[in-house]
């Protein structure tokens, strides 16, 4: 009984950590530009797929990962520079459709380069499962959690300790004021897209050995990240992390104890409940509308 519970909990936290990173990516871009970036999931896909194919070319794992994450970062910047920036006068819905177009485009290229089949990526360390309280745990899960935690800490330090991070925060609070004090907001937006691409691709790389990877995994993972961000309260960093973990755990418990057919439905029902009863999400900010 208890072993089962631990098993589900651990599975949930692992996938939840991935959701949390995607949700953080959503949050970053949403705060900086108010765009909901539906191409977010593609960064995960690129991270995993590029690593697999670089490994195939004979690169050692660490090099392959760094290169793959850099590739995602470049694509993130390009997305902002060539797709979002030129349309900055457009309606929010239009911007959302552009990100959807971008995600289809990226997926199309991935399908061309890597094919439609599933790819397997080896664990970072041994394949030997770890036994804990009678549960059997994949060693890769520890990598996911460790790297996830590290990234979150790094992000916090970045936003509180560096000038760059503070510039992003300032821009997300008030774009015009930020421009007045000399922050180059275009740079900041590019940086936000790059960071969220880095987060997404890291999540993609670390989780790939557990879930496998294919050209179209970005859709569902991206959406779950969005759900996590919404649960936490769109725009809140803490909310994104808690929302992600919560979503992962609830999903795993539903799949384990109720029905795996309805595990996705539970995630989406949670969103509705939160919206109905605590509309700003768990940690969303209260914004006073200015006239």
């Amino acid at each position: 009984m208890f072993a089962e519970f631990i098993q589900y909990l651990f599975t949930g936290i692992t996938i939840g950590a991935t959701y949390a990173l995607v949700a953080l990516g959503f949050t970053l871009i949403y705060n900086a530009s108010h765009v909901i970036n539906f191409a977010q999931g593609e960064f995960l896909m690129i991270g995993g797929m590029a690593t697999v194919s670089l490994l195939g070319m004979g690169f050692p794992m660490p090099v392959a990962i760094v290169l793959a994450v850099m590739l995602a970062g470049i694509i993130g910047v390009a997305l902002q520079r060539f797709a979002i920036a030129p349309a900055k006068q457009a309606d929010v819905v239009t911007l959302i459709i552009i990100t959807i177009g971008a995600s289809i485009f990226i997926r199309g290229i991935a399908q061309l380069v890597w094919g439609k089949e599933y790819h397997v990526m080896p664990n970072f360390s041994s394949d030997e499962p770890i036994r804990l309280f009678g549960a059997v745990l994949n060693s890769q899960s520890f990598w996911v959690l460790g790297i996830g935690a590290l990234l979150v800490v790094a992000l916090v330090l970045f936003f509180t300790r560096t000038l760059m991070g503070k510039a992003i925060l300032a821009t997300s609070m008030n774009k015009d004021a930020a421009r007045l004090v000399g922050i180059r907001t275009q740079m900041v937006l590019m940086l936000a897209f790059m960071l969220s691409a880095l987060l997404g691709s890291m999540a993609g790389v670390t989780v790939a050995p557990i879930t496998f990877t294919a050209y179209d995994i970005g859709i569902m993972l991206g959406l779950k990240g969005f759900v996590a961000a919404a649960l936490g309260g769109l725009g809140s960093g803490v909310g994104a992390v808690v929302g992600g973990l919560l979503l992962g755990v609830v999903e795993a418990m539903t799949a384990g104890y109720i029905s795996s057919d309805y595990k996705d439905a539970v995630a989406f029902s949670m969103i509705l409940l939160v919206l109905f009863f605590m509309p700003r999400g768990l940690f969303g900010s209260r914004v006073v509308e200015r006239v």
């Binding site: 797709a83 006068q89 459709i97 177009g101 289809i104 997926r107 061309l112």
Partner: peptide, 17 residues
């Protein structure tokens, strides 16, 4: 097909918002 569909969608929306 998929790549072109995404590209057309993106370009149309960027240049004809």
């Amino acid at each position: 097909e998929m790549m072109m569909f995404g590209l057309i969608l993106m370009l149309t929306m960027i240049f004809m918002p």
